[in-house]
Nucleic acid binder design. Structure first.
Length: 418
RNA sequence: GUGGCCGUAGCUCAGUUGGUUAGAGCGCCAGGUUGUGGCCCUGGAGGUCGGGGGUUCAAGUCCCCUCGGUCACCCCA
């Protein structure tokens, strides 16, 4: 066992597994860029305040944040999620709205790892600022849906809820507290004392006692104000119009407190329930203003890369694409040909590899075979003296032939093109 | 933070009631073919048995501690 390892809750991804990551990111970029979203790159760490303003009362910010003091005495934190950073960037740069952004990157939460849960994990996501239209909710939910479909996933469920807004959430909240007050004896230990601070959390509690209470609790969707009700009807009607199946999840409460109106989650039905949340998001119309910016509506989602890959494993989709070079140069005449030919081939757009350290012809051919190359270029002492290169197909009819050294790159390009 | 299970070669694992120099398959390297891959044959490299302490004539094996992995609770992606 070597002494140095990756930190707890982190992991390395090497090829060929990493090719699945490349493929996943390429599919995501294709889907969202095809809808007018542009890549936004924000820092991996931010001033601690950026995250504290977003969710001071949530576990993610309270207990799981990787925060520390840097050498300049600043309190900073590795981002536990990306939305806060993107909001901060929006406020700082004030791009024209509607601003449609996508991202891909690491997030950090200090908790003990288990299946599908890591201290550093990866998300892809989108955010849109400056449009309150319910049709945008439809677009955002549909893009996530399309992305899963594009990966080949079939067993994904879209769950939708509305959390109301500043008009209808407070009265609903009061109603919920009143209900919980009457049933407080039936709540789990944790929520019996704490339901007054954050009553919505009880709806999300997985303990059987709380679940029973939550089942009969008043539902926000039945107590929406007229504006939120119309918004929700338009958003869900839009999903129906696009033929995207969805289910109403009246107890859906997300882990961050900034959501308003439409909230949603994607569940991977092929996964165990402990890690079946493969993505989630919602509207956050008050967040930009809360963080010190102009009053601006917003909506977005974040999808968990590790969870999605688990779902792909479970559904047997998204195989790692084969990576292969086109040509492998076998040189046992001193190495000049391997050095020069690989450079010339690459300059001509041909993927080319070679061996090093003067290995035997047999060893070089073994590596050539493993490389997946279609062609080998062979240069031994006789070829070098004659100024020729042997072209040898590595599959099918393996008859090889000699080609003049100064024509071989063009010849290879022609062979590969056909 | 709490609990279950698990740590032997790069990987997957075997290793008997404690007993000599810890093994296999795969992978890797070399040779069999002084210039030609996949199959085959032969050989080789590679291990402080996670670490520390203890019991014992003797510990990969038993005990304690510790570190790590993994899964679950909580929370979430």
């Amino acid at each position: 066992m070597s002494e140095l390892r990756h930190p707890i809750g982190t992991f390395d991804v090497l090829a060929p597994d990493s090719r699945r990551w490349e493929a996943l990111l390429a599919v995501f970029a294709r889907v969202v860029e095809g809808a007018g979203y542009g890549l936004v790159i924000t820092p991996t760490f931010e001033d601690l305040q950026v995250f504290q303003r977003v969710g001071a009362s949530t576990d993610i910010v309270r207990k799981e944040m990787y925060d520390f003091e840097d050498k300049g005495g600043r309190r900073v934190a590795l981002r536990p999620e990306v939305t806060a950073s993107v909001v901060r960037a929006f406020i700082q740069h004030r791009p024209t709205t509607p601003w449609k952004a996508w991202y891909a990157g690491s997030n950090f939460r200090y908790e003990s790892p288990q299946a599908g849960r890591y201290r550093e994990f990866h998300q892809v996501g989108i955010e849109v600022f400056g449009a309150a239209d319910a049709d945008l909710d439809v677009e955002v939910m549909a893009l996530g849906w399309e992305f899963y479909r594009a990966l080949g996933l079939r067993r994904v469920e879209l769950m939708v809820n509305s959390l109301g807004d500043a008009t209808c959430r407070p009265p609903y909240r009061a109603l919920l507290i009143e209900y919980l007050e009457a049933r407080s004896g039936d709540l789990c230990d944790e929520h019996r004392d704490r339901f007054r601070e954050n009553p919505l959390r009880v709806l999300d509690c997985k303990r059987p006692t709380c679940k029973a209470v939550a089942a009969d609790a008043p539902k926000q969707v039945e107590h929406l104000c007229d504006a939120c009700g119309a918004h929700f009807a338009r958003a869900t009607g839009g999903l129906d119009a696009l033929g995207i199946p969805w289910t109403l999840a009246t107890n859906l409460v997300r882990g961050l407190d900034y959501y308003t109106r439409t909230t949603f989650e994607y569940a991977g039905l092929a996964l165990d329930s402990a890690q079946n949340a493969v993505g989630g998001g919602g509207r956050y119309d008050a967040l930009v203003e809360e963080m010190g910016g102009p009053s601006t509506p917003g909506i977005g989602f974040a999808l968990g890369v590790e969870r999605i890959l688990m779902a792909c494993d479970a559904e047997g989709t998204l195989a790692a694409p084969d990576a292969a070079v086109d040509v492998f140069v076998v040189d046992f005449a001193g190495g000049d040909a391997a050095r020069d030919l690989t450079a010339q081939l690459r300059a001509a757009g041909v993927r080319a590899d070679r061996s090093f350290d003067g290995r035997s012809a047999k060893a070089q051919f073994k590596v050539a075979d493993r490389s997946g190359a279609r062609l080998a270029l062979v240069v031994g002492p006789d070829d070098a003296a004659a100024g020729t290169v042997m072209i040898r197909p590595l599959t099918g009819d393996r008859t090889q032939w000699a080609t003049p050294r100064d024509q071989v790159v063009a010849e290879v390009a022609r062979l590969l093109g056909s």
